[in-house]
Amino acid sequence: MEIDRIDGRTPNQLRPLACSRSVLNRAHGSASWSQGDTKVLAAVYGPKAGIKKNENPEKACIEVIWKPKTGQSGKSEREYEMILKRTLQSICILTVNPNTTTTVIIQVVNDDGAVSFKGYGFHLLPCSINAACAALVDAGIPLKHLAVAICCGLAESGYVILDPTKLEEQKMKAFAYLVFPNSVLSVLPEGSSKVVGEPTESGIITSVTQGAMAVDDYFHCLERGRAANEKMSAFLRRSLQPQLPG
């Protein structure tokens, strides 16, 4: 069963990606990330001295502030902040700068929207995780690896498409928003970071789903997400490399 996509993409094809770094002057690190018409701006301030609330003598703390395109932030924004915070915490090496706080601010610039439903949906999550990740690199925050976020849409027939637009989203019955570690180029020594024969890059950092699906369909989404990971990782590497010194 095939589905014709409105913009003529193949099911596994992502929207055109664009990433530019150091777009803000005063921030320690910043990046803008766009996937098709969705655009998110991320800024990183820190590491700065820990504020009392987040103080931890052993680890650095990450704080995320999510600013929606319009209106005030509510419950959904709180949830995005929590997911983003935990995701970024897992890719940062927190023990390097103990007792500090790093603030990541996400500003939604454009939400690919023909029709706008306010208040639900996680469709901005992948884009902002990718943006935050690029901004952290720009700020020089020590990271274990990068995070690559992708959205899979599941149609009624069990057909999976990657990176759906908002218009396409309305025809889907369920979604899986997945974050993986970026795929590595180097060959790791045997058994170093592998768990039961699976490479690190197939492990899930974050998974959020929406709508009901069969268990098998979820694993199908996982597979497709992993396949896209390689392409996304290559893009991330390409767009982060030229600005590295040397």
């Binding site: 935990r86 899930i204 268990v215």
Partner: peptide, 17 residues
């Protein structure tokens, strides 16, 4: 037996299949 949600918000450990 439908999967309504599989929710893993980050965390240091990766979830493998």
């Amino acid at each position: 037996d439908q999967l309504v949600s599989l929710y893993k918000p980050g965390g240091p450990a990766l979830a493998f299949t």
